[in-house]
Structure formats: structure tokens, C-alpha cells
Simulated scan of single mutants.
Amino acid sequence: MRVSPLWKYIGCGLVLLIAMSAATHAAGTPVIDIDAEDAAAPWSQADGAGAANEIVREAFARSGVPVRLHTVPYARCKAEMLAGSVVGCIAVGANEALGTRARLPRTPLYRVRTVLVSREHAPIGSCDAHTWPASATVGRVNAYEYAPRFEQALAATHVAVSELGSEPQGLRMLVAGRIDALVLQLDSLKTLDYVQRQAGAQAPLQVACDFGPLDSHIGFSVRHRDGAFALAAFEQGYAAMLADGSVERILDTWRERLLKSPSPPR
């Protein structure tokens, strides 16, 4: 059948309109820049892998939103999210100090427990901060959020505080005797044994105190123009993942991986 030149032009025009519509739609979905901590294995690792990172990527994929993850030290992750130079940060603790400075999803990525770890027979061996000697030094990770009971205990003492770059660094300092105690965020994936093996700091340690739970979220910037959009997109995808069991499958995969790995990535 012969096609008139007019119909050829109409057909070409329709193809062009469809292509332009698709391009416009794609351009209308911003790429979300998210920082992820580089030293919070197995949740978030320097190589960009990690259980939390994997969950976040898939949640955004479910909502059709492209993301770029940048692995950085936690202090930078948090500072850039608060300043609005990135849309989000994996992962921030939902404590009073953070307050309304960040947008947090209704459901956390995971829950940690804030514990104080010391060497056996160390001067800090209990939750009673009044018994901690003033000469003692407690290590904490710079900019980390901790359970309120720990912050209250620390405020009630005159011990020195050493601000550290990461928990593995703190464990090496603890084993070497350079600090007297170290506050850690532990959970079912990131156990004390795991962090010790990651740090290469195998020595007899004790959990001197458990200060209680703290929810860990992907935090979204209040200042960034895409903060509210990203929060909504993440929550939509995350809810779908929780409903169909995808989150638990990712966590099960990481549990199996950790059981088979004698030496966590450093």
C-alpha cells in the first residue's frame, strides 16, 4: 500500500513527540545524591556495599527514582545532609540532638543498642557514671548520635572524651590502652565480635553498660529542595519492600555472608 507524504510526516511527528515526552519525563525525575558512611560495615561500607545501602538503592528503584551514593566519613555525611549539599545520609540516629534538623522516615532501617565497652578490670565497668574516674578517657565517633542515656551519663561526669573517626579505630585504641572505654552501636548484624575482627583488635573486652536502643534511619535534608520528594519516594519503595519480604531477604543474605566470611572487610 502506498503511503502519502502527509501520513509520513504525521507518523514521524508522532514518533518525535513520544520521544520528547519520554525525555521530558526522565528529566523531571531528579537524580538523588546520598552520602553513606564509609566505616559502618556491614550496613554501609567504604566500597559502597552494605545492607543499608542495598535496601536504600532498591527502595528508590521501586519508586523509579535514580540515586547516586557517595561513601564518606560519617561527620561529613551528616554535615552535608544538614547543610543541604546532598539530599540524604545513611544512617543517622533518631535522638533528641538531631531533632527537627533532618527529615526521618516513619520506619527505621535498623535499630542499634548503644553500649560501653572496656578492657577487663578497667576503671570504667558499669553504667553508673559517678563511679567513672575523672582521669579516664571515653572514646566516641565524631558526630555519631547515641542513646539518650549515654549522653546523660557523659554529661554527668568529668571524664575526657576522645573524638574518633570510626569504631574500628576506637577499638584498636582501646586494646592498646590509649582510651579506657569506647561507646559502640551494636545490633544483630554488627556484633562486638564482628567489629573486633574488622578492627583486627582481638583482646578480652567486656560490655560495661548497655544504654539502650536507638533507631537508625536514612536522614533527608530539610534544606535541600529535593528532601521532601526523596523522603516520600523512599517511604513508598521501602513500604513495598517491607510488605513483600524483600528487606528481610536482604538481611538474611547478609547474615549468611557474614557467617561465611572469617574476616570482615576493613
Rank of each mutant, 00 (worst) to 15 (best):
C77K: 09
Y9D: 11
D244Q: 05
A40Q: 12
S44N: 09
G99S: 08
M173D: 07
S21T: 11
A41K: 00
D33I: 11
M81G: 02
H224Q: 02
A199G: 09
D187Q: 04
G125S: 11
A230M: 11
A155S: 14
G13T: 01
E120W: 04
H121P: 00
D128P: 03
R266C: 03
S261W: 07
G237W: 10
R257C: 06
A39Y: 12
T157C: 08
Q45I: 09
L189G: 02
H130G: 09
G227E: 02
R178V: 01
A208W: 12
D33W: 13
D187I: 07
Q202R: 13
R57M: 10
P108S: 02
G84I: 02
S263V: 09
R140S: 10
W7Y: 12
S188T: 14
Y146D: 02
A239C: 06
N142H: 14
T71H: 13
A153V: 11
R119K: 11
G93T: 08
A39C: 10
R103M: 15
A59N: 06
T107P: 03
V31M: 12
G99W: 12
A94R: 15
E54K: 11
G28Q: 15
T253H: 15
I55C: 13
P262W: 12
R111K: 14
D244S: 01
D33A: 14
E37N: 15
T107A: 13
W132I: 01
L251V: 15
I10S: 03
L6G: 07
G93W: 06
L164W: 06
H130T: 14
A228Q: 15
R249E: 10
A27E: 13
S135H: 09
L182Y: 05
S118H: 07
V31I: 14
Q198E: 13
F234Q: 05
I250G: 07
A79N: 11
G237S: 06
A36Y: 06
I250E: 12
Q185N: 15
I124V: 04
R249A: 14
I10T: 06
A51E: 14
N142S: 13
M173F: 10
E163S: 13
R113C: 00
Y146G: 02
A239N: 10
P262R: 14
Y238C: 06
E167Y: 05
L104S: 02
R178I: 01
F220L: 03
M241Q: 04
L186W: 04
F150P: 03
P213E: 08
L205R: 06
A181R: 00
Q169N: 09
L116V: 03
E167G: 12
V159G: 01
Y194R: 09
D180Q: 10
V247W: 09
G99V: 10
S261A: 15
D128I: 03
L214C: 06
S166H: 04
A36V: 09
K78S: 09
P30V: 13
L251I: 14
V247A: 07
V15W: 03
G165T: 12
F229K: 08
